[in-house]
Amino acid sequence: MEHLAFEMDSREEGGPARPPVLVGAVGSGNLEVLVEPGGGAGRCRVEVHTSAPGFAAVWEAVLRDFAGRHPVAGLSLAVNDGGATPAVVTLRLGQALEEYRRPGR
């Protein structure tokens, strides 16, 4: 297992604090993403626990790209990963953020 932590800049706020959500599931090639309030103004905090060590640079690139394109400032993301590809990671992050912000949830 490898544990990574990042702090990302994000221009847009993730919205008012809401109850946490968990999206996805941990399995081979899959991951779960927990979205919670936290991270501070203009910043998004991310922790990653992955069963595939040695991909810190890839994680950082995927996460920076995601944070640059989505309103995640003031949010904290936590990932348990079973060796997902970058495409699957981006997909799950998007689903998790959409679920977190879904009105009436």
Binding site: M1, L22, L34, E36, S51
Partner: peptide, 21 residues
């Protein structure tokens, strides 16, 4: 719920990923 991060205390020793719930 998952935010409590009550994960398995045994899987890490086996180098297996946990789940938050």
């Amino acid at each position: 719920g998952p935010a409590a991060r009550e994960s398995s205390p045994h899987l890490a020793a086996l180098d297996l990923p946990v789940s938050f719930d």
